[in-house]
Simulated assay, not measured.
Amino acid sequence: MTQQVVPSAKRFARETPIGRKRRARKMAKVLAETHPDAHCELDFTTPLELAVATILSAQTTDVRVNQVTPTLFKRYVTAADYAAADRAEMEELLRPTGFFRAKTDSLIKLGHALLDKHDGVLPGKLDELVALPGIGRKTANVILGNAFGVPGLTVDTHFRRLTNRFGWVLEEDPVKIEFLVADLIEKRDWTMLSHRVIFHGRRVCHARKPACGACTLAAMCPSYGTGPTEPAAAAKLLKGPRARELAVAAGVDPELVPAAAVAAPEEP
């Protein structure tokens, strides 16, 4: 049975701050139900490995990074290994990730900084992380949330796009978005919310044409109608291994989801 939801942006025009917070938390709950498989998609076993992988993920996909890091992590295990790296050798390893010269520079400098300031150990505090080469606030929050268990919001392109579409924020600056969303969502949920929003952005709420008619958030979203609302058209836009399950969750016939959508790469 398909959804019969036709929300209008006008419904949210006079929304109070407390109303927005309640709606945001309801949407966060639905996202948790919609994407139970949400997780950090970078492969790592130590905080340093996650820091390196996150630095490498700039301007490329997590899939591509995960193809490169097994060899990289065998060759470079400690901060001292990165500090002493042969530049040409590391550049060749990182070439598939793009911007490999700049990334090599960041990793070598990171190794030196960790040795000079932290006895070779990656710190677990935001202010110390952002002071390190190659690590900005977004990267620091990824590290804190996934390697140290410290709640953090990762404001990437998906998170910025979706929180604006959801009407949680009207802002493009990542730091401002982080603080605004932090005021809406309970701290304990920050890290997983980031993963769930990113999964939703990759699989459902695409940049150019979101699958509005096959979205579990349709009834609460002021941007409903940005993409096709007809279930048959929307279902074709779902992507990823759970595309048919996402259709079912939205009340849409899973048979409308083509096999190609299940096998299609998700939006980077």
Rank of each mutant, 00 (worst) to 15 (best):
H206A: 06
V77M: 13
R203S: 10
H39Y: 10
S106P: 04
P47T: 10
L122M: 06
V197N: 00
G167W: 13
K29F: 14
H35K: 03
V52W: 08
P258I: 12
T61W: 13
A53M: 07
V197P: 03
A51L: 01
F73M: 12
L107Q: 04
A249M: 08
T71P: 07
G98K: 10
L170V: 07
C40I: 06
G201C: 10
Q3K: 08
A84S: 14
L170T: 15
F12Q: 03
D105G: 11
H118W: 07
D127G: 00
H200G: 06
G124R: 11
P47A: 03
V6Q: 07
Y82S: 06
E186K: 09
D43E: 11
P96Y: 13
G98W: 10
A260V: 15
E92C: 06
A147P: 07
T191W: 06
I108F: 11
S106N: 15
E49K: 06
E49P: 05
H206R: 14
L132M: 07
R196F: 10
L246T: 11
D62C: 12
D189T: 00
I135F: 00
G124F: 03
A207K: 11
K109E: 12
Y82A: 01
C215R: 02
L217M: 13
V130L: 00
V181C: 09
A38I: 11
G152D: 01
L48S: 03
H118P: 09
A147Q: 05
R203T: 08
L162P: 00
F179T: 15
P254Y: 12
V30L: 15
P47D: 07
L50T: 05
P265N: 02
P222S: 07
P7E: 08
